[in-house]
Every structure is written in structure tokens, then in C-alpha cells.
Amino acid sequence: MRIADRPFTIAVVLALVVSVLPTRIMGGVLGDVSSVMTALLNPPAHVLQVVREWLRPPHHARGPLDPVMRELLRERDTYRSQWHAARQEVVELERKLDQFGAIRRADPSGAWRLVDAAVGMSVPASSQGVVQLMTGTALGVAAGDVAMVRGDLLAGRVGPAPGRLTCTLVPIGHGGLGRIDASIVIDEAGKGRRLPVQLEAIGGQRLACDVPLDGGVLPGMLVRLRDSSWPKGAQGMVLGSVVEVVRKDQQPLRGRAIVLPAIDVGTLAEVTIKATGQDNDA
């Protein structure tokens, strides 16, 4: 059979060539063209599908409309949500176990007990982050006890005069904690060279300290507690990290290191208190 039309012959040859080209070469273009065609044809096709389903409904003996199936789906969803909740609880308990283990490893003296405290509302009229904790002296919490997160990140200290069931948490970076002796870890991975500093709150939940400009202090370095006025078990815990080192105008050879607390108490739902007081419930 002879086809004299040259454009048609070229079109057929082109189609045959495209038909054997690997997908990686033509697949993208053809996919796009197909998408455009499908987009144009989908609306009327959908109408036809609806008519088709109306004329000949699919077998739903055990489909979503079947009451037995609906009940099974409901039960499945219920158990699935319960399973997710249980899984979440397990993850939470594992996290607590890890935290308690880390705390015990850091201070094996055992002269304390760990108390989980839910974070309540912020104290009214306090714009500096003091929060209420839902625990108190009933569980042995005493004024000055430290609150921590994830094992060794200091969140703050329990404020004065804790109640029986509630207390306040004064976070790191709050002026009420006064000056804090700490050390900047210059060489965390190596010998652990530390630079003793004294931190003071400068507002905005930040701390600052004077450092020698040639002391090797750089942003990102950890700042650990080294203050004898704090409980012994809190020594060495992480207060925060250096975020900025600026030159002091009056003392050109010294700098000012700005430290951001490791924990933003405002974002916490729970902290762990290393309680040193007596358990009044006992």
C-alpha cells in the first residue's frame, strides 16, 4: 500500500521513532501533554463516571456504605487513635527515663529526688518569664531547687516560698537569679578548657558577661554552671550558649559575650525538678 502524502509519512515515522524512544527521554514532555489532555477531558469524563455509577453501581457488599463495614471502619479508627496515643505515651516515658538516667549519671550522690512538674500559667504582671509549676513542697520541692530539661539543660530555679502544691520557676536569664558564676567551655571536644565568667541578666531573657577578646570565646560555645551558691547537683549543667561577642567601647581589649539560655521556659509544658527538700506527703 503506497501512501503518497509526505506530511503523513513524516508524521508516521516520527510517531514510530517516538514509540521506541526510552521513557527517560520523552517521558516528561509526553507526561505534560497527557496532563493537559486529561485536564481538558476530566470534567466531562467525571460526569460520565457519575452517570455510569448511577446506572451500574459498583458492588458494595463490603464497601464503605455497608453498615457492617462502616462499623468496622469506625472501630478501626478508634483503635488506631488509641494506638497512636499509646505510642505517644511510650515515647514520652522513654524520654523521661532517658532524662532521669542522665541526671542520675551526672550526680550519683542520690541526695535528691526527681519531681516532674507541669508548667502552668505565667505569673501575672511578670514579663520576664516567671512561670507557675504544678508541684510544691508536698513532693519535697524547696526554694532554690533547680529545674532542668533533657537531663542537663538548666531551666531555672524554684522561686522563694513554694506552696504546698504549686511553686514558681525563675528562669535562667531572669534578673531575680542575680549574678551567676559559670564557665564558657572553649574546647568542648578536646581538653575541655574553660573560661570562668560571671553572668548577669541584661533583659530579654538574655545574659551577658565580660570576656577577654583574645580568650577564644566564639558564638556557639556552651556555658555551664559553676556557682557554689547553686545546689551541688546542678554544677556543670548547661546554662546556655554564646550567641554574640562584641567589643566593649570603654575597654577595647575586653569583649562582652551575650549568652542565650538553653531553654525558653515559655515553650515548655513540663520540667523536672531536682528536689532537695523533705517529702511532706510522707
Binding site: 510517531a15 517516538v18 514509540s19 521506541v20 521513557t23 517521558g27 507526561g31
Partner: peptide
């Protein structure tokens, strides 16, 4: 995934 192939129906 899905692929679009020109050829089978054309041929």
C-alpha cells in the same frame, strides 16, 4: 509512577 507512551495505540 505512571508513564505516557506514544506508540502502542498509534501503531
Amino acid at each position: 509512577a505512571t508513564i505516557v507512551v506514544v506508540g502502542p495505540n498509534t501503531l
